[in-house]
């Protein structure tokens, strides 16, 4: 779906991304992790052509981002920014969702239908003013207007910054459900617990380079890479690693409890 081929990127003479190559496949839930300033957001902006690579190329469903307009790529890629206030520009929720839809759809009947559907899914009152709502609600409105366009690929740039646990879960569970239905998700974050709970694949970025790319278990076990990227594995994964082989590949508290239960039963037999 998304392919980076030896991508480098520099801004005003300062190189920020060096020779990054990877491919996100359909249905992936990939997390891009790294410390602040590592180049995560730059990578996410390279995917939909807001930034164009200085060398190498980025392909989205076979289309080169250098030759395709970002506004055209918007039909395939939905992008949720960290700050919803940059996205919201209408004075009612209904108009806001409509604004996004009108950019990618022509059929008025279809637009109307999708707005109603989206309002229902999110439980919004369409006549409310987004600017008077809480930060978490505004993030949900931004997400709603992105999802209304039904993108095949969803790019999330630190989608849960500044949200409380409940708001965070509301957003992430929705994204997870979409992923189950086939949407490809690319999530930029430094919240390791979030990565642990939702992502299946992890890409580690540090100093503008791709340091690791693989499934959760193998990446979290790679202490060297995590150290180079100034990251700590999630507590539960770290604990599982320290406990050794019987606890291999555990990323959730539930799994840990199950495994302990299993081992206990095994021992008592």
């Amino acid at each position: 779906m998304v392919r980076f081929e030896a991508v480098s990127f520099g801004y005003e003479g300062k190189q920020t991304i060096y020779d990054v190559t990877f491919q996100i496949n359909q249905g992936d839930f990939a997390a891009i992790i790294g410390a602040n300033g590592a180049g995560k957001t730059t990578i996410s902006k390279l995917t939909n052509g807001i930034l164009k690579p200085t060398s190498g190329r980025v392909l989205v469903k076979g289309k080169d981002t250098k030759t395709t307009k970002t506004s055209e790529l918007a039909r395939t890629i939905g992008f949720l920014f960290q700050n919803p206030d940059r996205q919201i520009c209408q004075t009612t929720i209904r108009d806001e969702i409509m604004f996004g839809l009108k950019c990618v759809l022509k059929d008025n009947h279809e637009i109307e239908e999708r707005i109603n559907q989206t309002l229902e899914t999110f439980g919004f009152d369409g006549s409310r003013d987004p600017f008077s709502m809480s930060r978490g609600e505004r993030q949900r409105i931004a997400l709603a207007s992105v999802l209304a366009t039904r993108p095949e690929i969803l790019v999330l740039d630190e989608p849960t910054t500044g949200l409380d646990y409940r708001e965070c879960m509301q957003i992430m569970e929705l994204v997870q459900e979409l992923n189950r239905q086939g949407t490809t998700v690319m999530m930029v974050t430094h919240d390791m617990e979030l990565v642990n709970d939702f992502a299946s694949r992890v890409l580690v970025v540090g100093g503008g380079r791709l340091l690791a790319d693989g499934d959760k278990t193998s990446v979290f076990r790679n202490a060297e890479v995590l150290k180079a990227a100034s990251l700590m594995p999630p507590q539960i994964s770290a604990l599982a690693q320290r406990l050794g082989e019987p606890f291999e590949g555990i990323h959730h508290v539930d799994e840990m409890a199950d495994r302990i239960q299993c081992l206990k039963e095994g021992a008592s037999l």
Partner: peptide, 19 residues
């Protein structure tokens, strides 16, 4: 800077600023 970021965000939604 704000305007730049807003324009980026809107382009990502499909507003044709790159026209």
């Amino acid at each position: 800077n704000d305007m730049q970021a807003i324009m980026e965000a809107q382009t990502a939604r499909g507003v044709e600023f790159d026209t």
